[in-house]
């Protein structure tokens, strides 16, 4: 084989890669917060007695699940200026990714809500809790703990999906990889390292998540 693998060449770009990792982290964390809050709100809406709230949340989730993230991203990035709304790429990336990930989060939080037996509601009602108090002190904490593991896997997916944000000029890790591969002419090494790093990252996160999950485990 004529080709010599050379990973050394890449070390001169380490600063660039570091900045890419930082940006990926920023995008992902911001999107996580948005998707988590939206996920709870949507899950509540889907369980509510109000038909309109249920419909809106249902439509929201279906549209997001049945269209590609890339199109959603372009829609916000190129479409919003048409309304005179000019937002920087980073904000668009964070918000679009947050909205995108709100759909799966809604689903897992909702199944957490569904898993709660009426017995808990009755027990807290018998103590004198109002519906809101019951929800805040009993139902929500239980369902979030039930949803903890699927939520973390949603968040891992979110980090993987954030790589698509390079298409709107964000120099996160994937954008950096693209640039460096053009400059160094070492695409194979770069994408291989990226593949392995993402995999290791995912593994690390799910390892930690498993450990935490065991500690806060809830048995209904």
């Amino acid at each position: 084989m004529g080709y010599q693998l050379n990973f050394r060449v890449l070390s001169q770009y380490s600063d660039l890669f570091l900045s890419g990792i930082v940006l990926t982290g920023k995008i992902s964390l911001g999107a996580m917060v948005i998707s988590f809050i939206l996920g709870i709100v949507l899950a509540i809406m889907r369980q509510s007695k109000n038909k309109i709230a249920r419909r809106i949340a249902g439509l929201w989730v279906e549209v997001l699940r049945n269209t590609p993230f890339l199109i959603q991203l372009f829609f916000f990035y190129y479409g919003l200026p048409q309304f005179g709304i000019y937002v920087d790429a980073l904000t668009v990336g964070i918000v679009a990714l947050g909205i995108n990930a709100s759909a799966p989060n809604c689903e897992v939080i909702r199944s957490g809500l569904l898993a709660i037996k009426t017995g808990y509601y009755e027990a807290s009602a018998a103590l004198g809790f109002s519906k809101l108090q019951n929800f805040l002190f009993v139902v929500l904490p239980i369902s979030l703990r039930l949803a903890f593991k699927p939520l973390t896997s949603n968040f891992v997916n979110l980090v993987l999906t954030s790589s698509v944000c390079y298409s709107i000029t964000l120099m996160e890790i994937m954008g950096v990889a693209k640039t460096v591969s053009a400059r160094s002419n070492r695409p194979f090494e770069i994408y291989l390292i990226l593949l392995i790093s993402y995999t290791l990252f995912t593994y690390a996160v799910s390892f930690i998540a498993k450990a935490i999950d065991k500690r806060i485990e809830i048995r209904l």
Binding site: V156, L160, P187, E189, I190, Y191, L192, L194, T202, Y203
Partner: peptide, 17 residues
């Protein structure tokens, strides 16, 4: 556990190396 886009680029841009 890695983005599809990375896999795709590895195959399309990387493998020719």
């Amino acid at each position: 556990n890695s983005p599809l886009i990375v896999q795709l680029f590895l195959v399309y841009y990387g493998l020719p190396s």
